[in-house]
Design a binder for these strands. Structure first.
Lengths: 344, 344
DNA sequence: CTGTTAGCGCTTTCAA
DNA sequence: TTGAAAGCGCTAACAG
């Protein structure tokens, strides 16, 4: 059936016929190849323009087996943390004239698996993945096949794969140590799931700081987010603190897995008339834009977000361009720093 | 040159050879077509699995001329407003099993033009565009060619194109009217560029409300954002208010083009010890998540963000699927509402 | 400098 | 139920 709603695209053949030359002459003309008469070229370009020619990239990619496209899978594109990392990816990709197909796994492993497949079907040249770490099968396969991939934001100790992530243990450590130094006697932690390395590392840092100062670590002090909510991080922080208050738990400091959780925690505390930082001190993680705008301004761990994205792309780019099998995989660990504001 | 770093992908031909059947039998087996012996099918599926077959979508698309992909061009993916609209798009696209290529025009018309071209080269089935409105040539061409497109968030009065946007005049009107009712005598407005319909509409509403209450509209009360900054909206709001204060302008109310500008405005006012809402009342626009978290909580105009994205996709989907030329273009206008919090 | 030819991987007639 | 052959639009090798 002829689709009248959409004009058919002009092909090289159309141009060739009109110009009275062969298809391949047209191809050469339009791709700025050598060995072409300037006059012919000009003529062809003119006709292409008149006809409104738009190259069919599928055909090109099918032929050349190169897409100049990478896939990016993030857990939540509406989380400002990922927006900022993505900015770095985007900037690096533009420099190298690469395109990006971005997908949102929404924290579901099934999606991650499915998206990887889709990206492979699209023959992306490589993948930048923020993995869920709920399972590893999908990634293992890519690595076994030596498909160009860089794992971002999560640690895969001992794996033969390029990776870039922050020094999470240090982050958790300096955050907690700071709270202790500020005089907190009972510090809770609210974290994400425990199976991802970021969460795990931050908890480890938290424990390390407590132990170092001779405080005992109690597992019930570590709260794990309940993620059933829409926009779950803020809500989860809010719910968790509300519950802690209702159960009359005693605490004078909270270290949150990320700034969003901290926002929710602050909201709950304020609603109960608890003063920050006087009664309870709060430290977040990530240092997203809004953290210097909320009240009280949030003390937090700054992560090099844009740099992480920028570097991640360039690591992937190198991997894509490396023509030989290389067993030297890059593991880049970014430093973090404590940003002291008003909440702690 | 053989690229050893990347295993070659398995093709239908490979499977066919191993199974001792023809390529087309394999194709039919893997695509769940009728007319295939269940046993043959099973055998083929098994081999495909063993060999790790991944379909080459370029080949399929080249042949079928359908990509099941749409392009989305947003001005700034790190602005929470667009993140939320995008969520709606994403949800709708998933329902229809469509994929999305998202691009970030960064407020530059050159990028918009360039991205449209790229998307056409990728033969997307349609485009969802948040236009800059700095120029119209690129869009005009698409419309002339009857390429499936939906313009989102901006009004194109009298154009033969599907569009969805908010009732901006109403938004500006109710925001300003509310400030007047609260007793504001001198209300400033800080807006984005003036050439886009959203900005234009909100200014119109602002003027309408002032006039209706017998107040005179002074053009110098309307401040236009200076956008040279990184993360410009917040910074621009901050800079603008700082400048107004330095120049000792008199005002007791500010209506901001969006919440981000309002955040910056609030920050500047606080730094100067000006109380909100006692000395100056602030109303924002969009009602992004963080607006109920900052202090004071922001009074703002709520826009149906997710719905806008969701509807936009479905309008585009209909357009893509409509097989005949249709001259009835859809123009959907979403309602807005005033959310009263603490800042005004 | 230009044309002919082959083929990327897949789908789709049309025969068998 | 299956196979052979053509072709989507483009590029590249090779002649001329």
């Amino acid at each position: 059936m002829i689709k009248l709603t959409q004009a058919k695209f002009v092909t090289l053949k159309d141009i060739a016929e009109k110009a009275g030359v062969s298809v391949n002459t047209v191809s050469r003309a339009l791709n700025n190849k050598p060995d072409i008469n300037p006059k012919t070229k000009e003529k062809i370009e003119k006709i292409a323009d008149e006809l409104g020619y738009v190259k069919n990239s599928y055909a090109t990619m099918l032929k050349s087996q190169v897409s100049n496209t990478i896939g990016v899978i993030v857990p939540d594109s509406s989380n400002p943390f990922f927006s900022e990392v993505f900015k770095g990816i985007d900037r690096a990709a533009k420099e190298k004239d690469y395109q990006i197909i971005m997908m949102n796994s929404e924290g579901l492993y099934e999606n991650e698996e499915q998206f990887i497949r889709t990206l492979l079907e699209r023959r992306v040249d490589g993948i930048l993945l923020f993995p869920m770490q709920k399972s590893y099968e999908d990634i293992k396969e890519l690595i076994r096949e030596r498909f160009p991939i860089v794992l971002v934001g999560r640690e895969y100790d001992g794996w033969d794969v390029d990776q870039i992530y922050s020094d999470e243990v240090k982050g958790g450590y300096i955050a907690t140590k700071y709270l202790i130094e500020k005089g907190c006697k009972r510090i809770k932690m609210i974290t994400d799931e425990l199976y991802n390395s970021a969460s795990f590392g931050r908890v480890e840092g938290y424990k390390k700081a407590l132990k170092e100062k001779g405080k005992k670590v109690q597992d019930q002090d570590i709260k794990i987010c309940d993620k059933i909510h829409e926009g779950y991080h803020i809500q989860a922080g809010y719910d968790e603190v509300t519950k802690m208050l209702k159960q009359k738990e005693i605490f004078d400091g909270i270290f949150c897995y990320n700034d969003l959780i901290a926002y929710g925690a602050i909201k709950a505390l304020k609603e109960h008339g608890i003063r920050i930082p006087k009664d309870v001190r709060i430290v977040g993680y990530d240092d997203i834009t809004f953290s210097s705008l909320i009240e009280p301004e949030l003390t937090t761990i700054r992560v090099k977000k844009e740099e992480m994205g920028y570097e991640a792309f360039n690591m992937l780019y190198k991997r894509i361009k490396s023509d030989r099998i290389s067993n030297s995989f890059v593991k880049k660990i970014l430093d973090v720093e404590l940003i002291i504001r008003k909440s702690a």
